[in-house]
Amino acid sequence: MSINQPSSSSSSTPFGQGQHSSVTLNGTSSSSGAVNTPLTPITSESGFEYPAIWSFPPFFTLQPNPSTLSHQLELWRALILRWARHERVFKVNTDSGEAGGVFENKRIKRKLLPQSLKRVFQEMAKNGEAAPDPPKQDNKYLIYWKKPDEWGDLIYTWVTDNGLNSSIMTFYEITDGDLSHTTEFYELPPPILRKALESLVKRGKAQLLEGKGEVGEGVRFL
């Protein structure tokens, strides 16, 4: 599984209800032909509500008509951000073909294939909603369901509230320490943390300290 889900809900499919998957949703393959079952929103086991369009098979094919495509990309961007926030997903691998989660609807046997996934993430990166990490490739992306400076603000507020300003903390302490496991940035991946802290540095609220030997990189809040 290519998605890092901190609260590892393991490799279970998004749905528990395990409906057998017919090839088409509307049962057109059956003899009656005119079954018109509505496409409905679906709530996953983890409580995430997938919109009805997620059960619309063509949603997983990037559309050749440019105006349809731009609408479709907007829908995808919004859906991915909402999903990532709900599931606390920070990283996506666009290359594996097994991206899972929001990117695959097992009921209707449709998924965003790597090329489409890349296109969607390029679009998100263009809008500051994701960033390739490391830069200049399109296999691995960070998802910014909060922007780095928003993470920075959140961390800084937490630091102030806990009287930690002017103390020195390691990166690990911030995202994985005893004090932080109730925070929203618990287990925030280091690349996002670094960008968040850099935004604080830029605003004169923090100083980055190089790591020495065993001790990892640190930061002093000002």
């Binding site: 090839v23 088409t24 619309f56 098979p57 063509p58 949603f59 997983f60 094919t61 990037l62 559309q63 050749p64 349809t68 479709q72 046997k109 449709r110 998924k111 294939l113 090329q115 489409s116 296109r119």
Partner: peptide
Amino acid sequence: WVDDQSFAFDHLSGSGV
């Protein structure tokens, strides 16, 4: 809207056309 995954085919282009 095109659904090119309804097509038993290796999906190389992904553009549906």
